[in-house]
Amino acid sequence: MSAVLPELPSVFTPVVPLREAGDAMARAVALAPQHGAGSLAWVRSAARIEAAVVLEPEMTLAAARAALLAGASALGDALAAFGPPEVPLTFRWPDRVVVNGGEIGRVRIAWPDACAEDAIPDWIVVGAEARLMFPQGWEPGHGLGQTALQEEGWDLAEATAEELTAAWARHLMAGLAEWQRTDPAGGFRRLAERYLARLEKVEALDGKRGLDPATGDLMVDRDGARTRFPLTEALA
């Protein structure tokens, strides 16, 4: 394992990696008020990736919370680039990442406690986690409904924690830049398309699906009726 990440865009400032038991999300939240956008906390581990980055949005908290979905798409793209193309990688609304039917990781988001929904937060933190391998001694199937990249055919000699962490950060920044660079409606539409393309096709979400750019809520139209799945409620 290396204590250095592969080359990243200049917007990132990686901090000293945390040890195996570290919490990248908590570290990034602690850094956010003083260190600001681009601070990247990550865990140095052979068994999992865990990273979190500080962002400084220019939109209200209600709208900025959709950065969680950008984080999921970035994690999906980063993992898929190293894995067998025939193995399905999907999202379970709103924040779980699933490979071949088994949960493998998740994305997380945090913001200042006192920030109102219609206020622009000083910062938000988006984090990602994914399991590279099961702990030593676990038998296949031990984690019910869970899996690991190694179990699904990923080559961990290439898909190291460092490589995947850097790949996630690059994909995240590219997705956020596209969202902000283009007109708001068009940028969010592309973000939504990428996320929805991987969202699980389960009965409860069967229908024409979309994301509300004002809140990140999932909307499903079926039989002339619309059902809204609020992002805040799903995260809670």
Score class of each variant (00 low, 15 high):
215 T>P: 09
77 D>W: 02
127 G>E: 02
176 L>Q: 00
89 L>P: 04
177 A>F: 02
198 R>L: 11
23 D>V: 14
54 V>W: 03
225 A>W: 13
43 V>D: 07
16 V>L: 14
98 V>K: 05
51 A>D: 07
111 W>E: 07
33 P>I: 08
194 R>D: 00
127 G>K: 01
188 F>R: 00
144 L>C: 04
59 M>D: 11
111 W>Q: 05
11 V>N: 11
130 A>I: 06
113 D>G: 13
154 W>F: 07
217 D>Y: 08
181 R>M: 05
87 V>Q: 06
3 A>T: 11
178 E>N: 11
103 E>P: 02
110 A>K: 06
59 M>Y: 05
130 A>W: 04
140 P>W: 09
206 D>I: 00
80 A>I: 05
16 V>H: 12
47 A>H: 10
51 A>T: 12
209 R>N: 01
140 P>H: 07
33 P>N: 10
47 A>K: 11
8 L>T: 02
85 P>S: 10
232 T>V: 15
68 L>C: 02
144 L>S: 08
234 A>M: 10
135 P>V: 05
224 G>S: 07
167 A>Y: 07
83 G>M: 06
158 E>N: 03
31 L>G: 08
5 L>S: 05
77 D>K: 03
220 V>S: 04
177 A>M: 06
68 L>Q: 01
126 V>I: 15
72 A>E: 01
7 E>S: 15
94 P>T: 08
36 G>L: 10
12 F>P: 02
156 L>V: 03
208 K>R: 11
55 L>M: 09
137 G>C: 06
26 A>E: 15
161 A>N: 05
116 A>N: 13
230 P>L: 06
187 G>I: 00
110 A>D: 12
9 P>Y: 07
201 K>S: 14
183 D>Y: 00
136 Q>V: 14
137 G>T: 03
164 L>K: 00
18 L>D: 09
60 T>F: 04
31 L>M: 14
185 A>H: 10
198 R>G: 05
88 P>Q: 05
194 R>A: 03
157 A>Y: 01
124 I>V: 15
66 A>C: 10
161 A>R: 03
